[in-house]
Structure formats: C-alpha cells, structure tokens
Design a protein around this nucleic acid. Sequence first.
RNA 1: GCUGGCGUAGCUCAGUUGGUAGAGCAACGGAUUUGUAAUCCGUGGGUCGGGGGUUCAACUCCCUUCGCCAGCUCCA
Length: 646
Amino acid sequence: MSMIFVQLPDGSKKELSEGSSALDLASGIGRRLAEAAMGARINGAVAGLATTLNDGDTVEILTFDTREGQDVFRHSAAHLMASAIMKVRPNTKLAIGPSIEDGFYYDIDADPPLTEEDFPAIEAEMAALVKADAPFVRREVSKAEALNHFRAQGDIYKVELIEGLEDGAITYYDNGDFTDLCRGPHLPSTGRIKAFKLLSVAGAYWRGDEKRPMLQRIYGTAFPNKKQLDEYLALRAEAEKRDHRRLGRQLDLFSFHTAGPGFPFFHPKGMIVLNSLLDFWHEEHRKRGYGQVRTPIILDRGLWEQSGHWDHYKENMYFTQIDERDYAVKPMNCPGGMLIYKTAKRSYRDLPMRMAELGTVHRHEKSGVLHGLTRVRMFTQDDAHIFMTPEQIQKEVIGVIDFVDTVYSLFGLEYAVELSTRPEKSIGSDEMWETATSSLKSALEAKGMAFKINEGDGAFYGPKIDFHVRDSLKRSWQCATIQLDFAMPEKFDLEYTGPDGNAHRPVMIHRVIYGAIERFLGILIEHFAGAFPTWLAPVQAVVIPVASAFEDYAKEVNGALFARGFRVEVDDSTETMKYKIRNAQTQQIPYMLVVGERERENRTVAVRHRRHGDLGSLSLDTFVERLGEEVRTRALDTALAVPKAE
RNA sequence: GCUGGCGUAGCUCAGUUGGUAGAGCAACGGAUUUGUAAUCCGUGGGUCGGGGGUUCAACUCCCUUCGCCAGCUCCA
C-alpha cells in the first residue's frame, strides 16, 4: 500500500490514493486538491515534483503565489528557453539558468552572439514546445556518464559544473529531446508555461569571475497566464517612467555633462530638495547630541598611508601633486575626523563623542558602473564618527539603528538590513573582528531586526550593518551603513583617559544615514515618482489667475505665501488656465491656487491638489495655516480635508 | 574595466538600397482673456557626439575616440 502525502500551501497534509504516479499528481490531482483544500481556485500553476516517489514521501504543492512556486515555474521556463535556443542555434554551449525575482535567465555561449533580433525565433520555438506539452522527467546519472555526455557536446561549462559535483548526486531533467543537468524540481510539463517573454541580453562573467570568459545572459520572464504577464510588463513600463534620471531632467533638478562623467550638477530646484533634506538632518543631529565638523578635500599622502587607504583603496582614489608634495583627494572622511579627535586629551567623560560631517568625497568608480545619481564619482556622505568606550558600543549602535529607522520611516521607505563580515583584504586582529562583529549582531538582535549575513563584505577596517533601499526598477542600493572600527583608533593611536587615570583605546563607529545625499535623492525621486512631499517640493504652490485681470490678486496671494516662507510662484504667462494647471501637474507642484472673480471678492483661494484634485475654496488665512502645518510636520500627504472618493 | 546596444534641434523621436535633414513638445513673436490636465497662427533653432578613412558624394559604410544605456564584476 502506497502512502504518499501532499503538503498543501497552508501546511496541512493530505493523503493521496494508491496508484497515482507522481506525474499524475503533478499534472492533475495536485491542482485540484490544492484548490479543494483552499476552497478557492488557484490562479496559477502547481509545481515542484520529483518523478519517483516512495512510500511515506511528502509531496509539496507549490502555487505561483509563493516564491518557491515561482522559482520552480521560472526555472522550468529557463529550461524551455534553453531548449528553444538549442533548436535555433544548435552549437550553443549552455552554462547555468536559474530563476530570479520576477523571471529567469540562462547564461549561454553562442557563436555568433545572440541578439534581441533572435528573440522572436526563440520565442516561437518556445511556444511550439509549450504546445507540445512535453513532461519534465527526472533521472539520475553517474558522474562518468554525465561527463561523457557533455564532453561529447563540447559544453565546457557543464563539464566544469559536473566536475565539481559528487558522483551519485547528479540528476538530469529530460524535456522532449532536450536534456539538461539540473537539480530540479520542475513543473510537470511545459504546457503550463502559458505566458513568457524574453526581455534582454547582456554579458555576465562565467561563475561571476571577471577573470573568466564573458557569457551571454538572456533574461526572460514567465507567468501562468497572459494577464499576469501583461500586468508585469505594464508595471515595468511604469517603473521606467519614474526613473530618477528621466525625472531629474523633467523636473529640472540636476544634470550630467561629458565634462565630468559621474559628477552631478545640481540645479536650483534640486538644491531645494537637497537642502530641505539637510535641514531635517541638522535638526535630528542636534537632538541626538552630535557636533558637526568639516575636514579638507585633499590631504597629504602620508595620512592615507597611515589610515590604510593607500594600501587598500588606492585604485579608487584621485591624486594630485602640489609643490612636489603628494596629495590624495579624500575617498572617505574618517582620517580627518581622527585628526580632530587627537587635537585634545580626551576623557571618558567626553565619550561617546559624536562628530557628524557632510563630507564630499571623490571615488574613481569604473566607467561602466555609473548610474544617474545612485552611482556617481563625487558625492556627499552624511557621515559621522562616534568615538566611545567598549562598554558604550551596543547603546550607540542601537542609537544609530533607531536614527536610521526614524529617518526612513518619515519617507515611508522600506529597507532590508545586512550584516557584512570580514573581507579578504582587511586590517586588524582576529579578536578585534570577532568582538566587533558580535557587537553589531547583538545590537541587531536586541532591536529584533531581521537581517541577512553578508560574508566577507565588510569594510577593510571593520564589519558593518548595511541598509538597502530599492529603486523603481527593483535594483537595491545601499544607503545607510553602520561600521564598527577597532582598527583605525589603533592606527592613529587614539586614546582617552579612563576613571582609573590610565590611557585607554576608544572604539569608533563610522556611520551614514542617508548614505550619499545624491543617491538618497535619486531613490526619493523614484519613490515619490517626482511628487515630493510638500516640505521637499521645489515649488510648493503655484497661483494661477483664471485671466490676466486677476493677476493683481494672484500676486497678492503669492506675496502672502512668500512672506510666510513658502516656495510659491505666480503663473502669469499668457497661456490658458487649463494649460497652466497641466503644467503645474507635470511639475508635480503640490498645490495649485486658482484665483478669479469669486476668490478676489471673498479673499479666498480655490485649492487644487496635484493628486486629490479640486479641494474647493478656502480663505487665504486657512490655507496658509494648513500649508504651514503640513510643512512643519513634514507630512507625506496633504493637511487639507480631502473629500472621500466614492 | 568587461560583453552587447545606442549617440540626429533643449526634450521625445522619424530619416527608405549612400545623393549635404524632418515632426511633436519646448523656446521666441503675435492674436486670444479663458473656472480645474494641452487656444490658434507664425518664427528661429541641428558642421547628424568628436576625429580619421572609403567614395564623385557619408547622418547612412569602415576605423578610432568620448559619452550614454542594460547587465556582469565592484560599491555609498
């Protein structure tokens, strides 16, 4: 008597009747069962089965609603694509083809290289394979057999992969006449991949190693039905529209010029946003007991040798020579902070000593990595160095974590946390690293914060906690970082006098909250799709007279708002009111104040909000008061009453 | 830096097999004086990223260089 269980997505198990082959389960029973158990139709595929099952096995039914289910689905789609590529280009060598968030890719070595022009042919072949509905069949092979097979095909990549595998643990998945080395699991058959699209092709190093050959990576995505695929594609198109590089031009915030690749130029409107961010930053630092310092951009070579940057960071630094003396342009602010610390004899009573610095740094990034404001060669870090006793570490780290959370919450930004440990190129002893790493870890645990460990990704002088925020195209960017450093105080021989009257070595934290203000601005532009909260908006309100006869009153309204410190403009161009409104909308100006006969009579303004539309008339005084409230509280939405949508 | 792609007016883009460039928006001028997302008419604007080559002739082909885009490697 066979006993096979199906584990449903809700965690419960259901026994299946005898005689169901795994394939049957997968292709038919699985979905039906799952639907019955959940009391609803599953909008998607059932995935993830092995082809041979033993008594007592549990079969997990994955739906497309789960990440695991999507992985199986997309991974099967990757096989489907590889199969189609082999039909279109029989002499292609295959490397690996995993699923990724929202899709999949396959790394291939095609000669001549595939281009997007080949996509239609490949997609047509894929469609034919979907129609054929060939099952994915798992089978185990010996290492020798696998090696022979792929050597015969001349696929050096698969051969290398197999060489790294243990004999006895090698499985193939057959699908029609296509066979691929794979751990699985897969969909029962190709017929389920109803909707797919190849998206792009780009280069990728074999095994992620820049010293190895570059392969072609074909990106694609797949969904259980066309509707979901179309929705996804529409979302992508929408995301592209909020690309900060595009909005930066449209909103006249910043520009780039060939005269300085990677060096951003901020326009007046961009500076308003930036300065508003910094006003907030200053307030918060004052509250949290930080002092502020400023240190030079270029400093003597000897200092960089002492700090270790000369040995560990030289390839990213700019240099200059003045009066036959070597200088480096600072890529980080810490050495300057060290020198300030050393200007006096410090006591334990002075600690923790928190010194913030809006430090402009230059880093010679490789040309291919530049990306709008999010990856530049000159940027300003909202840096701070906290000097403290070892006993103060936890409290200070927690303080910074809270700080980051407060700031990000204000913008409604979600973030992911990572703990990065000791890299290969590093300074300091094993114990230092051990203590520093566990201090950061325990602070995160004390905060009950979920985090991922990123082995070997720390700074050369210490481990760090990184906060990652995503851009509109789901690319993740590191913003805030908290780095614990025992090494730099050692190198600079920092000391403080303890209660015992003896000299002790302080520990330091390097931290940024926004990260780089340029990058943070880039992310905010995308996060808000250009519609900054009023406190950040370059223009907070525009007064629009319905006709030139009302320009006087419009100017009066403008003057009243200006006097209260608001950023306001009058649109007195000879265009129509509709045109001016449209203009203000495209510029994402929060408030449009329409004034005509009625408003002039009653000393009111007709308020239109960029998102909520017409909010009706308000007395000028009331509007000023509410706007003030909205700006003062740095609110995300309007402080005015918004009629409820039906 | 690597692989691939792309550089045409301020912006978004057309430009057929090589025969010295067009549109919409923007700008400017004029008319219009308008009640919640584009009023109408007109004008100016480009050594087609730079340099070199092939050709009677190059925006179109080739080389080179710079920049941009996607991804990889690297990073705030």
